[in-house]
Design a protein around this nucleic acid. Structure first.
Lengths: 292, 292
DNA sequence: CGGGTCTTTGATTAGGTTCAATAAGAGTGG
DNA sequence: CCACTCTTATTGAACCTAATCAAAGACCCG
């Protein structure tokens, strides 16, 4: 339902390089072809001043069909990607072929950032639906930062946001039960859909149980069972890929099942110790006595 | 409780609050006080050209004692930190007080990056030993990037590196057994110590079992037991905080115990599907036919 | 319609957590 | 300097969550 606009008839594009197949004139019917800087910033949810409106440069779009690989691990890095429409997954593959889903980029998300450091992508990105992506060559990216100081900050900000997201992921994997993970996953999907202007209550999963499991550090069976359980309790209604959120609050509230005693104790201690040691430290701007 | 000599009423510098207590004269004996840009780059393992040698600006150092908090969650962000010496931990605390260790920064590591996005730190950093940190005010950071194009790239690179590290963390938490996690942890510590010029074979852990467990998504008991087990087998010798690596190779090789069939199958499938769909896609620079 | 993929559900097992008790250090104050 | 306390570490036993193994039903696409 979400990807209707991306539906493209029988256009055969078997061009090798992602950039190359753009040359084909027939592609131009589907999807957007160019975006202005302003449009790009809006997409990325960056607050811009009017100063950028005059920027002439246009950013090229590329279309990918379901299942196509946008980039692979080890491939030389030269561009970042921003999702204009569609759904993808990024996957890490360790030294012996074990896949791990790292994220599910969708509208407004940036990916490819992991390639900057080593000049090669360290993950692979695959389209889960037909996708329309904006190309953001890294050269352009840095040049823009230099040209517009406010943009530079925005770029660091976007990268920082990614980092925070990853940290949240680590927290989740490290501390939450299977149920809590699946619940959070559903909630965040719901929020994401809302942001994009779709229904936050009724939506279709674009990924398989297996992919969800990989993302959450669970097996596909556990994911399936947990969804069924939520269905039983009435938190959601689930039928294959279609999800209806029935009790968002319950899902949001669902915390670790295996919790409390030790964790709470430790938390208290740690704070006390830190405070004692840091006797004369930075006055915490907030949260000074939240250990009640 | 904060009533000690924290308040230095009249010293109004433009230094961040955390530096204030440094004004205390007794502190000035220990540690370096200022670093040049060149020194900073070396510390961060950034390859620089000579062009930077003339940069006059000096970066201030700050010392923290064991247990002191460098920054807390929610505190307004204004500076990044680079570890010159010492050991720290960064911790996330979720909505109900559960702590999760995110990293153990040590010499050459950058932290505080998570504050850029929301302009507030989203994690807290605590010194695990006496530390000497270089302050890198974010303003300076961006200004430097604008002044030296090569530095700008380096900065994106450092942030990208952090992101890759987090991704590796997610992979580990998502896919590895307790034994494998502890093994990898030891190996990476070993490597890290080697980089810093210490012994890679014999070292002391700077963190508690509990902190290791939190970092690895395990309980402190499991960490302790696993170390004991490694000790039994002869992979390491462990006595309290002191570790001796006896069979690095065994530790490095130790992969998931619960592996193979499903994962392998899935991996094959995924690749096949992707390749089929992407029939004529970007020619992978490497790994084109690694699925044998 | 048939083969392949994806999903659901059940039975069983095992890895890791939880609870509990002891020991070993580290710091403190009399 | 030693007793006392607090934190940290080790180890055991019972329990439980989630993984594994297995099988059948649902969906999709050619």
């Amino acid at each position: 339902m979400l990807s209707t606009s991306t539906q493209l008839p029988d256009i055969r594009t078997d061009f090798p390089a992602s950039v190359l197949h753009l040359q084909n004139a027939t592609w131009q019917r589907q999807g957007k072809l160019w975006s202005t800087l302003k449009e790009l910033c809006d997409l990325l949810r960056i607050h811009t001043t009017s100063a950028l409106a005059d920027e002439e440069f246009l950013f090229q779009h590329v279309q990918f069909k379901t299942g196509q690989r946008i980039h692979t691990i080890g491939q030389p890095f030269e561009t970042l990607y921003i999702v204009h429409s569609g759904f993808l997954k990024t996957v890490a593959i360790d030294e012996f072929g074990n896949e791990q889903v790292l994220s599910f980029p969708m509208k407004g998300d940036l990916f490819g950032v992991d390639g900057i450091h080593s000049r090669r992508y360290s993950s692979e990105a695959v389209a889960l639906s037909n996708c329309d992506l904006v190309l953001l060559p890294f050269k352009k990216f840095t040049a823009l930062g230099r040209a517009h100081a406010e943009l530079e900050h925005a770029m660091y900000s976007v990268m920082s946001r990614e980092l925070v997201r990853e940290q949240a992921m680590v927290s989740m994997l490290g501390g939450l039960s299977a149920e809590a993970r699946v619940a959070r996953f559903l909630v965040s999907l719901s929020e994401r859909f809302a942001e994009m202007g779709y229904s936050s209550k009724i939506f279709n999963l674009r990924m398989t149980r297996h992919e969800i499991g990989s993302y959450l550090g669970l097996t596909l069976e556990t994911v399936s069972r947990t969804l069924s359980a939520f269905n039983e309790i009435g938190f959601i209604t689930v039928d294959q890929r279609s999800i209806t959120i029935r009790d968002l609050d319950a899902l949001t509230t669902l915390r670790r099942l295996p919790p409390s005693t030790l964790r709470a104790k430790q938390a208290r201690k740690a704070r006390a110790a830190a405070q004692a040691a840091a006797a004369a430290d930075v006055p915490p701007s907030s949260e000074s006595s939240s250990t009640a």
